[in-house]
Amino acid sequence: MTGLSSVRVAFVALAAAVALVLQTTVFPHLAWHGVGPNVVLLVVVAAGLARGAHFGMVLGFGAGLLLDLAPPADHAAGRWALALLVVGHVAGRVRQDAPAGVGGALAAVAACSFLGSSLFTLTGLLLDPGAGVPDLLEVVLAGVVWDLVLAAFVVPVVMRGLTRLDPAALAT
């Protein structure tokens, strides 16, 4: 690992931690029917878009694990880790398949938010088949809307930070 890439890892770790605290502490006050934005997911999507599938996937796993273990989470650990791992991977693939742009990034955020929440719900149903889930689709879609709104603030900051720390970008 070069010095720069460890700076990058430190940057995304910090971003994920800040996102976690904001998500559990600040946004519940603004939440609609208890549904707030998933800021950690946005950080993972931004990192995937900026750095590719490998980076996005590893960060997704780490950030998801943080989301699983940090209070007040009480679900089985590994559920957000799996969901965000896939999200990071998909966001990274989007970066390779489509030219980056505002529209493309927003579409990626919407798709990833839907995918992440759905995966999380599905693993929950797999682990505990008896549990009834109220208004499943409504909650997931409200989450997508929240994530789109917040993406405008979070994604550019994380992406710009990662590009600044990119040795290739510095060289050019």
Binding site: R51, G52, V58, F61, A76, A77, G78, T123
Partner: peptide, 26 residues
Amino acid sequence: PGKGTPPRSLVLALVLACASLMVLDQ
């Protein structure tokens, strides 16, 4: 590291890690 698609072994390892965490915690 951090470029391109991840090696298949890493994907497999992380997914398995998630699955075993879920089972352990459950």
